[in-house]
Design a protein around this nucleic acid. Structure first.
Length: 406
RNA sequence: GGCGGGGUGGCAGAGCGGUCAAUUGCACCAGGCUGUAAACUUGGCGCCCUUUGGGCUACGCAGGUUCGAAUCCUGCCCCCGCCA
């Protein structure tokens, strides 16, 4: 049996309180951690949306903290549940994924996962290991352990049911399969966002049927997305990706509503509680310019996912570009052939440079005075090409045009 | 199996033979003001053509009626409810 270091009271407090929603049952968790035994910390993921967001990072950072004590993370690739699509918080049935999609998504996911979580202390398991050999008998037996009423307790199912939205039968299987994962890997603790609570509890309920101790359910708060309204998620477009480059991450963080600054510090950094509280208070009372607090937060978070130098560079670039409205020093250069493009219309050029999604859109932008070349607003339909010219569209899209010479 | 309701742009939801590329709200994009915050305000929001203009493709799918269909008819697919 592997050993784990027993945390100090101070560490334990941090682990069980900071960026934690609920630990059920709390006392069991304390006992487990104090036992000195290396625990199996389960976390599952659906390889359906392969970009990890800062929302995921909240839970992953907790996992890393526990790994540092010697506990093992068991990450489950939900290659079966991905085919169902998690109904949690969904208003629609998700399309099923093909095997190839699942595989490549899983690779992408794990690459990002290990940016935060220690690979050495992690066991990667695929659901198909135990579900491929599953028989119908076992499926039926599993389904027999829960009732329709139990399933309809879930807010999202209840909501869909009462508003006459479709609920496919196989969606009920989702929590059951996830619960069985806990049995298969003999999980001691399962992690997830608060929206996962139901699923995690199902696992807890199922384990005793297989002569296992029920897992502890450990949930972390859902991070609110950049819109300041609802949970961060890729499909809602209000997300910051774990892999976003420093400048982009910094910029996205700066566009956050003020009220989220303290929350982001709390959930995504190790900035001490009293400092977080001070920030929260100063923003509520507006004793300092919230922008400065936000810049600090952005710097801290970028440091967390990149490093301090990158954060500083990102901040400098941000100030130059947005506060001072100058052209950033890092403009993506795009090489085109001036000969071939000689008579190109400006709108078409914008599309070619991917500064606008379509010609119509490009024309609108030009008409609305959103296009600048070398700092001058352009309104004419075509414009002479010059190598090194910098085109700006809107506030933050830039491209430097370079002549290929041929 | 029977009866009824419904499928419209990213979402919600109008339209029910021409004035509909389609009211409105949300979301989104851009300008102004700013702190790439909020609020406010102006414009935009299918694609293509240089245009006050024109063309093309669109209202679940496939046909049909009509000078003309998102709107009417037929078949099909899907969703929801009630009854069995």
């Amino acid at each position: 049996m592997d050993k784990a270091r027993v945390p100090t009271e101070q560490e334990l407090d941090w682990i069980t309180r900071r960026a934690v929603a609920e630990i059920i049952p709390f006392d069991d968790f304390i006992k487990l951690v104090k036992s000195g035994k290396s625990l199996r910390l389960k976390m599952g993921f659906d390889p359906s949306a392969p970009d990890l967001t800062l929302g995921h990072a909240v839970g992953l950072r907790k996992l890393r903290q526990l790994q540092e004590l010697g506990h093992r993370v068991v990450i489950i690739v939900g290659d079966w549940t991905a085919r169902i699509g998690d109904p949690s918080g969904q208003s629609k049935t998700r399309p099923m994924l093909t095997e190839e999609q699942v595989k490549s998504n899983a690779e992408t996911y794990l690459r990002q996962f290990f940016r935060i979580v220690d690979r050495e202390m992690t066991e990667v398991r695929w659901q198909s290991e135990w579900f491929n050999p599953f028989t119908l008998t076992e499926v039926v037996r599993l389904a027999g352990k829960f009732t329709v009423a139990q399933m309809l307790e879930r807010a999202d199912f209840a909501e869909r049911f009462s508003t006459q939205k479709a609920i496919s039968l196989h969606e009920f299987l989702y929590p059951l399969l996830q619960a069985y994962d806990s049995v298969a890997v003999k999980a001691d603790v399962e992690f997830g966002g608060t929206d996962q609570k139901f699923n995690l509890m199902v696992g807890r309920e199922l384990q005793p049927d297989f002569d296992q101790k029920p897992q502890v359910v450990y949930t972390v708060p859902l991070l609110v997305g950049t819109d300041g309204e609802i949970k961060m998620s890729k499909s809602l477009g209000n997300y910051v990706a774990v892999e976003d480059p420093p400048n982009e991450m910094y910029g996205k963080l700066m566009s956050l509503p003020d009220k989220l600054v303290a929350t982001y510090l709390e959930l995504l950094t190790d900035v001490p509680d009293d400092e977080v509280d001070a920030v929260r208070e100063s923003i509520e009372k507006r004793t300092v310019n919230p922008r400065d607090q936000k810049m600090r937060m952005a710097r801290e978070v970028v440091t967390e996912f990149h490093d301090a130098d990158a954060a500083q560079t990102a901040e400098d670039a941000f100030v130059r570009t947005f506060s001072k409205r100058e052209v950033p020093d890092q403009v993506p250069e795009i090489v085109i052939s001036f000969k071939e493009m000689a008579d190109i219309k400006l709108a078409a050029l914008l599309v070619h440079l991917k500064l606008a999604p379509s010609g119509s859109e490009a024309n609108r932008l030009i008409k609305q005075r959103a296009v600048e070349i070398d700092g001058e607003v352009v309104e004419s339909a075509s414009v002479p090409l010059r190598t090194g010219m910098v085109i700006r569209v809107g506030k933050h899209k830039f491209a430097k045009v370079i002549d290929s010479g041929s």
